[in-house]
Design a protein around this nucleic acid. Structure first.
Lengths: 226, 226
DNA sequence: GTCATTCCTGACCATTTGGTCAACATATTT
DNA sequence: AAATATGTTGACCAAATGGTCAGGAATGAC
């Protein structure tokens, strides 16, 4: 029989770009080039209208290389959407900021979205497209609902400390949808005939009103300061 | 010389489907089939992803027939978007309804959008897509900004009686963008994990809050009843 | 240095798609 | 009914696109 039993634990710790061979680094670099190019082309032409050639040409990379890294354009898109959502969520939760009231929390949410829209407009547009495609494209639908649910849940978690335990989850979900919808929708329409600077000055007064309305939606007084 | 002078007035009155030859009626019928099919396919696959074959097959019509009626799929899309916008505007202005206050006007706007979303969800989705493509697709961009501007202007006209003359047009535009953005955006996100019935019950309390926020944005008290 | 491995390339082929057109079908005129 | 006009069809071709692969370049092991 077996005399000595060993428990072998192999810990694989991924450390960014360390302990990578030069080959791997090179591959990583071209992969990154492809991702950046894809994001750029997606936002410019739209996901469906984009071809693999568009991506590889803008990345200055051979066509075959694309297929070494990704199965098709939908795989890149899914990865990019997932990452953009993560980044947006991170901004929402940033720097251990703990809002003192519901009003503050909502203002923080709107601000974070706005800054994301300004700083990373490409990713913002991509998310907007992706959101749309959920109900449209057969190939990509299932893999993409997930990220948007994570996003809505993240917002709900941010706001939950400020609403009574009794608030049902459905009302919470409505609130999150309202924030997400308002932000994405407003920026989308604001792009008609407004410059980026005008959008900035436009969102400020609206933010205030919108925050007040959502607070009252949850049954708080507009000016409560708990 | 001429003895008697006659003023001849020829009035050409277009009456729907009357005074059309049978040939023209037939053509009109297949054109309609193509339009209906195109709307259906656009909302299902997305504009960029649909092919002419998709449209003609669903319309049960030969491929060449499509090109007898339209230049390409973008021409159909432009026509459909323009018509859908017209219909939406008509709903906004419907039945000579004259709201008595800003609050009423805003509530009416949100209701009309909601009913349009429910009754004509295909057209709603198409408009949402079209709005997106404005900043995306090179081929279709110019022809499509127009309708959306008409739409925003229509909303501004609905609301203008209730704001002082001194309200600058920029603020008016922001208000319209807020309404449009909120409505389109909310429904878009509400489609994640909500049934149509849940969306209906969700929009009602939000409507109230949103109306209040927009009223306060214009400097009115939330409960003014002028 | 040589050899093996990993990664990249773009010419190449198969499929899809946009768009045309001669033939056909239906309607109108004479 | 014959001739003309209008509308429809789907086979057909050219262009665009997805996807492959033998060969080349960079890297790693020896």
């Amino acid at each position: 029989m077996v005399r000595n039993d060993y428990i072998v634990i192999i810990m694989v710790i991924e450390v960014e770009n360390v302990a990578l061979t030069r080959s791997e680094k090179r591959a990583e670099k071209t992969r990154k080039k492809l991702e950046i190019s894809a994001l750029s082309v997606f936002t410019e032409y739209g996901l469906d209208a984009t071809t693999i050639d568009d991506i590889t040409q803008r990345a200055d990379v051979g066509k075959g290389t694309f297929y070494r890294h990704f199965k098709d354009k939908y795989e890149v898109a899914t990865i990019l959407v997932g990452r953009a959502i993560d980044e947006l969520i991170l901004r929402l939760q940033k720097d251990g900021y703990r809002p003192g009231s519901l009003t503050e929390a909502l203002e923080h949410l709107l601000d974070a979205h706005y800054r994301f829209f300004v700083d990373e407009s490409d990713k913002f547009i991509l998310l907007f497209q992706g959101r749309l495609l959920v109900k449209l494209d057969r190939k990509i639908s299932e893999q993409m609902e997930g990220p948007y649910n994570l996003y809505l849940e993240a917002m709900e978690q941010m706001l939950s400390p400020f609403v009574g335990e009794k608030i049902d989850s459905m009302k919470m979900r409505r609130l999150a949808c309202a924030v997400a919808g308002f932000v994405f929708g407003f920026f989308s329409f604001a792009m008609i005939g407004m410059g980026l600077d005008e959008v900035e000055t436009s969102i400020q007064p609206l933010r205030q009103s919108f925050v007040r309305s959502l607070s009252s939606f949850l049954g708080h007084f507009p000016n409560e300061q708990r």
